[in-house]
Amino acid sequence: MFAIVRTGGKQYRVAAGDKIVVEKIVGDAGSTVSLDDVLLAGEGSDLKDVSGLTVSAEIIAQAKGEKVIVFKKRRRHNYRRRNGHRQQHTILKITAIG
């Protein structure tokens, strides 16, 4: 069985046992979270009713993404700015759908 869930402004297709990387969710490694915003669920080509359906997941780790360099420059004005950013992520393991 699979489900489409929305978290952090993005949508993910998940099934039991999958590992996904999402925007930061509050919690420690080993704790369980429930993803309530289920958009679609089904098995094979059959779709199921999603009212009251939740997806349970376990937090594996809190991590940081790759560094992104933000470089601004204006020609002929001696203006250069270099800034870096590392986005916070949460790694989830889907335990159950239902």
Score class of each variant (00 low, 15 high):
residue 88 Q to E: 14
residue 93 K to S: 12
residue 62 Q to E: 15
residue 62 Q to C: 14
residue 63 A to C: 10
residue 74 R to N: 12
residue 15 A to Q: 12
residue 68 V to L: 12
residue 73 K to G: 09
residue 11 Q to M: 07
residue 94 I to S: 07
residue 60 I to G: 08
residue 29 A to V: 00
residue 14 V to S: 01
residue 65 G to Q: 12
residue 30 G to Y: 02
residue 87 Q to D: 14
residue 7 T to I: 13
residue 88 Q to C: 05
residue 50 V to E: 03
residue 31 S to A: 12
residue 53 L to A: 03
residue 98 G to E: 08
residue 45 S to Y: 04
residue 81 R to P: 03
residue 47 L to M: 11
residue 4 I to N: 00
residue 4 I to A: 06
residue 44 G to H: 11
residue 92 L to K: 04
residue 36 D to W: 00
residue 4 I to Y: 00
residue 51 S to N: 11
residue 34 S to D: 07
residue 53 L to I: 07
residue 7 T to W: 00
residue 84 G to K: 08
residue 84 G to E: 14
residue 93 K to W: 01
residue 55 V to E: 00
residue 53 L to T: 07
residue 7 T to S: 08
residue 32 T to D: 07
residue 13 R to Q: 11
residue 11 Q to C: 10
residue 38 V to K: 02
residue 37 D to Y: 03
residue 87 Q to F: 10
residue 3 A to F: 07
residue 10 K to Q: 10
residue 26 V to F: 12
residue 57 A to S: 10
residue 83 N to V: 12
residue 55 V to K: 00
residue 60 I to A: 07
residue 45 S to E: 13
residue 4 I to V: 15
residue 20 I to P: 00
residue 46 D to A: 11
residue 23 E to D: 15
residue 66 E to S: 09
residue 98 G to T: 06
residue 17 G to V: 02
residue 95 T to G: 04
residue 73 K to S: 09
residue 72 K to C: 02
residue 50 V to M: 03
residue 71 F to L: 13
residue 96 A to Q: 05
residue 28 D to P: 01
residue 6 R to Q: 14
residue 45 S to F: 13
residue 61 A to D: 15
residue 48 K to R: 08
residue 49 D to Y: 00
residue 53 L to Q: 08
residue 78 N to L: 02
residue 29 A to C: 01
residue 89 H to C: 05
residue 77 H to D: 13
residue 80 R to E: 12
residue 80 R to N: 10
residue 86 R to L: 12
residue 78 N to F: 00
residue 31 S to V: 02
residue 80 R to F: 02
residue 92 L to R: 02
residue 72 K to Y: 05
residue 87 Q to K: 13
residue 81 R to N: 14
residue 95 T to Y: 07
residue 35 L to E: 01
residue 93 K to A: 11
residue 78 N to T: 11
residue 93 K to T: 13
residue 78 N to K: 15
residue 72 K to T: 06
residue 65 G to F: 13
residue 31 S to F: 00
residue 14 V to T: 04
residue 88 Q to R: 13
residue 45 S to Q: 15
residue 51 S to P: 01
residue 11 Q to V: 07
residue 94 I to Y: 06
residue 84 G to M: 02
residue 57 A to Y: 06
residue 56 S to M: 07
residue 37 D to A: 05
residue 6 R to C: 08
residue 33 V to T: 10
residue 6 R to G: 03
residue 76 R to N: 15
residue 82 R to N: 14
residue 59 I to S: 10
residue 30 G to T: 00
residue 36 D to C: 05
residue 64 K to R: 15
residue 52 G to K: 05
residue 85 H to N: 14
residue 61 A to E: 15
residue 54 T to F: 06
residue 25 I to S: 01
residue 52 G to C: 11
residue 62 Q to K: 10
residue 42 G to I: 09
residue 34 S to G: 01
residue 27 G to H: 04
residue 18 D to K: 03
residue 54 T to S: 12
residue 82 R to G: 04
residue 89 H to M: 08
residue 96 A to P: 03
residue 64 K to M: 10
residue 78 N to H: 14
residue 58 E to W: 04
residue 82 R to L: 14
residue 27 G to Q: 11
residue 48 K to I: 09
residue 55 V to A: 02
residue 54 T to M: 04
residue 54 T to N: 12
residue 68 V to W: 02
residue 67 K to Q: 15
residue 9 G to M: 11
residue 18 D to L: 08
residue 92 L to H: 07
residue 25 I to N: 01
residue 39 L to Q: 03
residue 4 I to P: 01
